[in-house]
Lab assay of single mutants.
Amino acid sequence: TIEDAIKKLLKLAQKGQPYTFGDFTVTSEEEAKKLAKWLKKQL
């Protein structure tokens, strides 16, 4: 689910690992949080 993807994304971001989700490449926890907010709006 999208919720699971968001959780995984935040965990990876906390470890400092870049994470690619579709067109987004997230390289920081701050970016992960922005992406998570955006994804929730898409639901």
Rank of each mutant, 00 (worst) to 15 (best):
Y19V: 10
E29I: 13
L43T: 02
E30H: 08
W38N: 00
L9R: 00
E30P: 03
D4Q: 12
D23C: 15
E29G: 08
L35F: 06
T25K: 07
Q17W: 15
F24V: 04
Q17V: 15
K33S: 05
L12E: 02
T27W: 10
Q14M: 14
T20D: 10
L39P: 00
K41D: 10
A32L: 10
A32E: 01
L43N: 03
V26E: 04
K11Q: 12
K37F: 11
T20E: 06
G22C: 15
K33W: 13
Q14V: 09
E29A: 10
E30W: 10
K41I: 06
T27M: 07
Q42W: 12
L12H: 05
F24L: 13
L43F: 07
K15M: 13
G16P: 03
T27V: 11
K33F: 11
I2M: 05
K41F: 08
W38R: 02
L43H: 05
E29W: 14
F21K: 01
L35E: 00
L9H: 01
G22M: 14
A13P: 03
A5Q: 07
Q17M: 15
W38P: 00
K8L: 13
T1Y: 10
L10F: 07
E30G: 04
E3V: 14
L43V: 06
D23Q: 12
E31F: 12
K33I: 14
K33M: 11
K34Q: 09
I6W: 07
L12C: 15
A5H: 09
K37D: 08
E29Q: 07
S28T: 12
K41Q: 11
E29R: 09
T25G: 05
A5K: 08
K7D: 07
I2D: 02
T1W: 14
K33N: 10
G22H: 07
A5S: 04
D23T: 12
I2T: 02
E3L: 14
K15R: 11
I2A: 04
E31C: 15
K7V: 07
E30C: 12
S28F: 13
D23H: 09
I2Y: 09
K40C: 15
G22T: 07
P18W: 15
L10I: 09
A32N: 01
L12S: 06
G16V: 07
Q17R: 04
F21L: 03
S28Q: 03
I2N: 01
F24D: 03
A32V: 06
I2H: 02
Q17I: 15
K34N: 05
K34P: 00
K37Y: 10
T1H: 05
D4S: 10
G16I: 11
K34L: 09
E31K: 04
K41R: 07
K15I: 10
K8S: 05
L35M: 02
F24C: 13
I6T: 00
K37A: 12
Q17E: 12
E30I: 08
K40R: 12
K40T: 12
T20A: 06
L10S: 01
L39A: 01
D23A: 13
T25V: 11
K8I: 11
